[in-house]
């Protein structure tokens, strides 16, 4: 296993980073749900249920343009509670000053993993009259993160030390222009992204097309590609995502398959399981990112059924573990 050099003496092993770089086994990440003023004991309980199964936990940043407890506060909370946060930062809500302040501040609390997103527009949320910022865009944010990891603000002013950071981004394999998406991923990798979490994709042929392109242009080797799957309990959320979530389309056949089944919860689960097995079988895929609308233990059940969890027990290395390692 390789380790990035760090100027931080207290730096402990970042399992998520180690696995993204070594590809010793599939990387598993999941999204922590949003919080709206609940007690931190609730956060700790939910975190404790996930931690044995995953290598990093995504802390969202006002997802779908709805305000929630902040990404910075929650990333620090998760770090303090013993989790390994992947702090998402969107470009929609803050200008370059505020974003850099969040990055450096979170870093001082030991948050190391950062994921840059453009972010849904304010019109996707419940405060459509808000001012959209987008002072930086996604690839620029990756580059700003790289600058801070090298000890400098965008202005050139030096930090007192170089924070240890593991930087990533997102990409959507299903959004037009399809052939350009691999170039955009490459642009982010060139700017310093070492992992790329992919938008939820219900069209396997598009995911495969994207992954193949990333193998050809070197992205899959230089960054850990993590396709996203989402646990739902029924067909209804699938229809909602199709109509209401920017950048996600769910084919009617997929919605019908779940809607017409006798047990929608089980059929939804099986659908996700098929997606996970399919994605992990694609050369160039480094792991899976889970989003969860169910919160009923489906993630734990699935990783157990696939022999991928909990950690330290029966996780097996990928057969082609050296195919894309550094």
């Amino acid at each position: 296993m390789s380790t990035e050099p760090s100027n931080n003496d207290s730096h402990s092993i970042n399992v998520f980073e180690e696995l993204c770089l070594s590809r010793a086994r599939p990387v598993m990440t999941a999204e922590l749900r949003s919080f709206d003023g609940e007690n931190l004991a609730v956060v700790e309980k939910e975190l404790t249920e996930l931690t044995p199964y995953i290598d990093g936990i995504n802390i969202t940043d006002n997802p779908a343009a709805h305000a929630h407890a902040s990404n910075t506060a929650m990333a620090i909370a998760v770090k303090t509670l013993g989790g390994n946060p992947i702090m998402q930062i969107v470009c929609r809500d803050k200008n370059r000053l505020a974003i850099q302040a969040d990055l450096v501040g979170a870093g001082m609390f030991g948050v190391e993993n950062f994921c840059a997103l453009t972010g849904d527009d304010v019109t996707a949320g419940d405060e459509k009259e808000a001012r959209r910022v987008f002072d930086l865009d996604g690839p620029q944010l990756v580059s700003v993160m790289t600058g801070i990891s090298q000890g400098s603000y965008l202005s050139g002013r030096k930090l007192k030390s170089e924070p240890h950071m593991f930087i990533g981004a997102v990409e959507n394999p299903t959004a037009p222009p399809l052939d350009y998406r691999v170039d955009r991923a490459l642009k982010k990798v060139d700017a310093g992204a070492k992992f790329i979490q992919l938008q939820i994709c219900y069209q396997p042929e598009k995911l495969e097309h994207f992954i193949r392109g990333c193998v050809l242009n070197g992205v899959a080797e230089r960054a850990a590609l993590l396709p996203t799957v989402v646990f739902t309990k029924s067909a209804r959320p699938l229809g909602f995502m199709d109509t209401s979530v920017p950048g996600i389309s769910v084919p009617k056949a997929v919605i019908d398959r779940v809607a017409n089944s006798e047990d929608q919860a089980e059929e939804s689960y099986q659908l996700v399981k098929e997606q996970v097995i399919y994605a992990l079988g694609l050369p160039g895929v480094a792991g899976i990112h889970f989003s969860d609308f169910r919160h009923d233990g489906s993630l734990q059940r699935m990783l157990q059924e696939l022999g991928l969890g909990p950690k330290g027990h029966d996780r097996q290395p990928k057969e082609d573990k050296n195919a894309y390692s550094h």
């Binding site: 527009d121 865009d137 690839p139 620029q140 959507n172 959004a175 642009k187 920017p246």
Partner: peptide
Amino acid sequence: KTLRNGPCGGVR
């Protein structure tokens, strides 16, 4: 979104 580096992931 005044993006300077390509389309966001929200393209329909």
